[in-house]
């Protein structure tokens, strides 16, 4: 019992910054500005900050943009990575080793190193201020290919051969047998990709410059820097809380699945 208590108290300390943000979002400006320490709002039910966020900013639009970007690019990434991993784990062909080395090699090039050049490529393709431009660099991840291959390899090749004897084509095997039986790793890749893309800041900042195409992550920082004086920090915190809700919800929903040991296989730990 004491053990659990210690664990929970540690957890509360860790999420104090989030609790702090939630508390501030329910405080009027003068209470935030006071020099006394007010951790909890002195009166409950002050919703002015949230009213400002929903009525004076296009927060729902920003969140929709983030959702489109993170959702679609994660789906595409799962498909692209699983197809490549399927090829690497179930076929023998010329150049396989060299091609796989290229995948592994790409893992040592950190994405942020490529940001400037990718920005120029995206601009030349005319994809500035488009969803495709916001998503395209997230379609591929060497590490996801690597992780999926690792999982597929533990899958017996004889099973694919057995399926072939039964008249199953390779692609059908991929679609009907391999993918459904690897839901845990697919979930892991999808969730980690979703959270990562939803959270990304630099890339959407670069490739969008209209209000309508801003993602929530970019917009919330602009709320503060450009218009903070109008809305006040309480509203900035309210906006932060609002855009925090969906990603935390998705995360909590799938958290048990992620912790449930699927990553143990993913990194072979």
């Amino acid at each position: 019992m004491l053990y659990q208590f210690i664990c929970i108290v540690t957890g509360v300390i860790l999420i104090l910054p989030i609790i702090y943000a939630i508390n501030i979002s329910f405080m009027p400006q003068d209470e935030i500005l006071t020099t006394n320490l007010h951790f909890f709002p002195s009166k409950a039910g002050y919703l002015e900050n949230y009213k400002i966020v929903f009525m004076h900013t296009r927060i729902l639009r920003f969140m929709w943009n983030s959702l489109v970007m993170a959702g679609i690019s994660s789906i595409v990434r799962v498909i692209v990575a699983s197809l490549a991993a399927f090829s690497f784990s179930f076929f023998e062909y010329r150049g396989k080793k060299a091609l796989f080395a290229l995948v592994v090699g790409s893992m040592i090039i950190p994405a942020d190193v490529l940001v400037v050049q990718n920005y120029f490529t995206t601009a030349e393709l005319g994809l500035i201020n488009t969803y495709l431009g916001m998503m395209v660099v997230f379609f591929i991840s060497g590490i996801n290919i690597f992780v999926m291959r690792q999982n597929f390899l533990s899958y017996s090749i004889s099973l694919k051969e057995a399926a072939q004897v039964d008249g199953c084509t390779n692609f059908k095997f991929y679609r009907k047998i391999l993918m459904p039986s690897n839901i845990p790793v697919i979930t892991t890749v999808f969730i980690s990709s979703f959270v990562g893309t939803w959270n990304t800041y630099l890339w959407p900042l670069l490739v969008t410059n209209t209000d309508a195409m801003r993602t929530a992550q970019v917009a919330v920082t602009m709320l503060n820097n450009n218009e903070g004086s109008n809305y006040g920090v309480g509203a900035v915190m309210a906006a932060a809380v609002v855009i925090l809700v969906p990603s935390v919800a998705v995360f909590l929903l799938f958290q048990r699945k992620i912790v449930g040991g699927v990553m143990a296989g993913a990194v072979k730990g």
Binding site: I15, V220, A240, F251
Partner: peptide, 29 residues
């Protein structure tokens, strides 16, 4: 333990929060 899922969620929570929200919170803090 019986409360595992509660504190696991709290420990891993920061993973779900974006750099810009984190930045806004700490900028104020």
């Amino acid at each position: 333990t019986r409360t595992s899922s509660l504190y696991e969620a709290m420990y891993s929570m920061s993973m779900a929060i974006s750099v810009s929200v984190v930045a806004m919170i700490f900028q104020l803090a």
